[in-house]
Nucleic acid binder design. Structure first.
Length: 350
DNA sequence: AAATCGACCAACCGCTCACAG
DNA sequence: CCTGTGAGCGGTTGGTCGATT
């Protein structure tokens, strides 16, 4: 069956917008607003365009204060950091960058940022290989197995790229506003990841000053606000994810906490097998295709609790461990959007 | 000068979700 | 509840342009 088309495709113009069309759309919206109905809007203005097309044109191009191109280093860092944490949720990322559209960020990521980071990563690998006297090998996966002791502990997980310390999580001149906004965002999003996501926040240690609230405490405080509308919370407990290794992990986390209070995602990841798995999927791009095709990553997963997914081509689905992802999806289906953020639960807070 | 290639980006497509009836 | 509809989102496509051969 399929759903009815949103407009009469045969009577709708496609392709690039003319200056005339832009002017019509812009002046109408500036005077009357969208009227809450994009579908009806083109007819009102006399444009032979699909309502969706008008919406996109307005949001991505005509809207006031839109910035195009010229991404700053700071913006790069924010995008990278958020991508690592939340994946390809461009609208969420765009919301943290005033004047940027999700489409812009998506394009920027796919065409430049990803390659830029990959290039840095490769250079870094080469430099390190030279330093260690490792013979250059076509297959990077073999290098990953010999590089250093940390790698030997977790041979299936490469070191985090050296570029990541540029992220706002480092103490290398990040602006506090970045950290703050990211932290707030992650706290909000934290509910989507249950307590495992909390580990990421703790691992990231978003530069909380000594004596200030830890991220856990902040989350607890946030929870007070969230929990107040109780209706949605009932389902949350039922959807709490339990990981086989949770307890040992938690002990490990407590013991090792000071070791990754310093900062980088990389350190966090290399310090902890669980986090490595958690972030590994989203970091696939840093390591290149060789590794993925080598099935090294798949092997790691097969022997661990995330064995459900060995298809490392599907990066976006691996941003979160499969259990979390599937669990979250389930919750998300059941819960109103505004309630999703309430899925803040962490046994440590009980 | 022409052909080819790759990077970039605007726009489209199809899906999910929220909401009204 | 169920259904239909519009909004919003992320993935993908296709056109343009500059660099290279």
């Amino acid at each position: 069956m399929g759903r009815a088309p949103c407009c009469d495709k045969s009577n709708v113009k496609k392709g690039p917008w003319s200056p005339d069309e832009d002017a019509k759309l812009k002046s109408y919206i500036e005077q009357h607003g969208t009227g809450g109905n994009w579908i009806a809007l083109p007819q009102k203005i006399g444009l032979k365009r699909c309502g969706k097309s008008c919406r996109l044109r307005w949001l991505n191009y005509l809207r006031p204060n839109i910035k195009h191109g010229g991404f700053s280093e700071e913006e790069d860092n924010i995008i990278c950091s958020l991508y690592v944490c939340i994946g390809s949720r461009w609208s969420v990322i765009a919301a943290q960058l005033p004047g940027r559209t999700d489409n812009d960020i998506k394009n920027y990521w796919n065409t430049r940022l990803k390659k830029k980071l990959l290039g840095k990563r490769r250079k870094e690998l080469q430099a390190r290989n030279k330093g260690n006297g490792v013979v250059e090998h076509e297959n990077n996966s073999s290098l990953l197995l010999q590089e250093n002791s940390a790698q030997q502990l977790h041979p299936c997980w490469p070191q985090i790229p050296a570029v990541l310390p540029l992220s706002p999580y480092t103490n290398q001149s990040p602006s506090f506003n970045d950290q703050d906004s990211i932290r707030k965002l992650l706290i909000k999003l934290g509910g989507r990841f249950s307590d495992d996501y909390q580990r990421i926040l703790d691992g990231l240690n978003l530069q909380f000053p000594h004596g200030s609230l830890s991220s856990t405490q902040l989350l607890q405080e946030e929870q007070v606000h969230f929990v107040s509308s109780a209706g949605c919370m009932n389902s949350i407990g039922n959807n709490q994810v339990q990981f086989g290794q949770s307890n040992e992990y938690r002990a490990e986390l407590v013991q090792g906490q000071s070791s990754f209070t310093t900062t980088t995602i990389g350190e966090m990841v290399s310090a902890n097998d669980y986090s490595q798995r958690l972030l590994g999927g989203s970091l696939e791009f840093f390591y290149g295709e060789e590794m993925i095709t080598d099935k090294i990553m798949g092997g790691a997963c097969a022997s661990s609790s995330c064995g459900q997914s060995t298809d490392w081509g599907e990066t976006s689905s691996l941003i979160y461990p499969p259990l979390v992802a599937s669990n979250y999806e389930g919750v998300r289906q059941e819960m109103p959007r505004e309630c999703v953020f309430q899925e803040l639960s962490y046994p440590g807070a009980q």
